Amino acid sequence: MKHETEEISKQNRTPETWHGKRYYSLDAYFKNTFGHKLNKIAINAGFTCPNRDGTLDTRGCIFCSEGGSGDFAVSFPSIETDAPYVAYFQSYTGTYAPIERLESIYEQALSNAHVVGISIATRPDCLSDEVIALLGQLKARYPHKFLWVELGLQTIHEETTHYIRRGYELACFTRGIHALAGLEIPVIVHVILGLPGESETMMLETVDYLNTLPISGIKLQLLHVLRGTDLATDYEKGLFPVLSMEEYLHILMNCIEHLSPETVIHRVTGDGPKDLLIAPIWSSHKKKVLNALHHQMKLTNSYQGKHWKGTISHASGTSNAL
């Protein structure tokens, strides 16, 4: 395995240590940076979302559960652990509150001795100048901890974004990326593979577009159909199919091969709550999916950046991702 990893690194100048994987995973990043594995604890800090409170809509995005995509999140700040961890503000929109409340919540997390950094899931239309300024101040205030922002793009295609009720235009997302990059705040982008009406070519176009932006990480998420969502209603009407595991792995590997090797891959699948998951049921066996992905990538000599046409930004070939 060591020889194969070195060969992949030589071929496309990827980070030298991917810890046996054929892509630059978040786990590898943590081990390379901190010398050990880190847990990322999902937090519900009591936020809401402009897609739910009536500002844009009251129904949320078409795929989003009642938990605001934070179905495994724990209430903030009731976290009891002595191990170092990343505080992940996952539920709903993590910058959608008065600035004083945001500062108080982020400060409480960053000042915790066990928190090595925070990751804030939000929307680009909820990144006001005031919020951007606060994030910059916190970054300077806690130089020994990190601050990431996670943005839910899902797709670059306008027709799909209208269907899923995302509620903002691509230009808004791009402005948000550049505003955060100007403060050297890393951005992780969420992309959903298998959205209704999207071809493999369309999904690859989303990845190719992200390669042109100063992003640090990406989450490649399988589309889940969850109970209580409008997506579930459309699925039960037979309006769209879900991907089989074989179809998903093929598309996923293609996306990974097109992705810049400097981008840290935070997720390659997903595990929706079993009590809510309608389809695809195979996705509930996460370990099986990951094993199949790693086996297939090795079998076909697939690796991150294999079909990427960009250039590494640092001569050392190491990632500036996070």
Score class of each variant (00 low, 15 high):
A121N: 01
E159I: 12
M245V: 04
N320G: 13
A73V: 11
C172D: 00
F34Q: 15
V116E: 00
Q304D: 07
S302Y: 09
N211D: 09
A45K: 12
Q90G: 02
K139P: 00
L195A: 04
V207E: 02
Q90R: 03
L276Q: 14
Q108G: 04
T5S: 15
Q11W: 08
P196K: 06
E103T: 11
C61M: 05
E262Y: 00
E130Y: 07
R165L: 09
A321W: 15
T300N: 02
G67V: 05
Q11T: 10
N44M: 09
G68R: 08
V207A: 12
E200D: 10
D129L: 10
T201E: 14
L138A: 09
D27L: 08
N211H: 10
N301Y: 04
K287G: 05
P214T: 08
P124Q: 11
P50V: 12
P214Y: 05
N32A: 03
F240L: 09
L220M: 11
Y303D: 04
M203L: 05
C255R: 13
G217V: 03
L222D: 08
L102E: 06
N211W: 14
F47S: 04
P50I: 05
E205P: 08
N320C: 02
R141H: 12
G228M: 07
G54W: 06
S104H: 15
K37S: 12
H178E: 15
H19T: 07
T33G: 04
H36A: 03
V225Q: 03
R175Q: 11
P261N: 07
S283Y: 06
L220H: 05
K37R: 03
M203C: 04
V149T: 05
F34K: 10
S75I: 05
A83V: 11
G70S: 14
P84C: 07
I156M: 09
S313H: 12
G305N: 05
A279P: 13
V242C: 13
S65W: 02
E80C: 04
L135I: 15
P124S: 13
S260K: 00
V225F: 03
S216A: 06
K2A: 02
G54Y: 01
A28R: 15
A97Q: 08
L127D: 05
N291G: 14
A292L: 09
L276W: 15
N320M: 11
H314C: 12
C172L: 03
D230V: 01
V264N: 11
L26E: 09
T311N: 10
K31N: 13
G228H: 10
L102K: 03
D129S: 13
D125C: 13
Y88L: 12
N301K: 08
Y142P: 00
L322M: 15
E169T: 09
S65C: 04
A292H: 05
D129M: 13
V131K: 05
L322C: 15
Q108H: 01
D129A: 14
L277C: 09
T233K: 03
S78W: 12
A279L: 10
V74T: 13
D275I: 08
K306T: 12
E169K: 14
A279W: 07
V116N: 00
G94C: 08
C61Y: 14
V115C: 06
F63T: 02
F146V: 00
R267K: 08
S302E: 07
Q108R: 01
M253F: 00
I79E: 02
L110D: 01
F63L: 07
A292N: 03
S9F: 00
